[in-house]
């Protein structure tokens, strides 16, 4: 059985302005928008102690504010050094202008 966990309203996040969301049972999450689609990943960089939502989103990429590494917001895969370990990405669904994390 999968369950849905409310993250935020769709208008709380926009392309280039990802949002930090804290929900019970998960580490801090980053929620992104790109071309009308929404994505969620862990917010803590796997390299330094930085929140990715303080970084710079450029298209599919979020750049870490600390050391310039980057991740793909859709897959969590690292795309620039020094980041080498993927961040976790989560499936989301949108209903009634609300973004939900789909949890297995």
């Amino acid at each position: 059985m999968s369950s849905k966990i409310l993250l935020c309203k769709t208008d709380a996040v926009s392309d280039g302005a990802p949002l930090n969301v804290n929900v019970e049972g998960f580490p801090s999450l980053a929620v992104y928008e790109l071309d009308g689609d929404y994505f969620a990943t862990d917010n803590l960089c796997t390299h330094g102690n930085a929140m990715l939502t303080d970084g710079y989103q450029e298209g599919e990429e979020i750049e870490c504010p600390f050391h310039g590494g980057a991740f793909n917001i859709k897959t969590g895969e690292p795309t620039a050094f020094p980041c080498q370990v993927a961040i976790k990405s989560y499936p989301v669904t949108v209903e009634n202008n609300e973004i939900y994390l789909v949890s297995a």
Binding site: D54, G55, Y56, P65
Partner: peptide
């Protein structure tokens, strides 16, 4: 205030 760095660099 590292979050100013991304836009500042660009």
């Amino acid at each position: 205030q590292a979050k100013d760095m991304g836009a500042g660099r660009r």
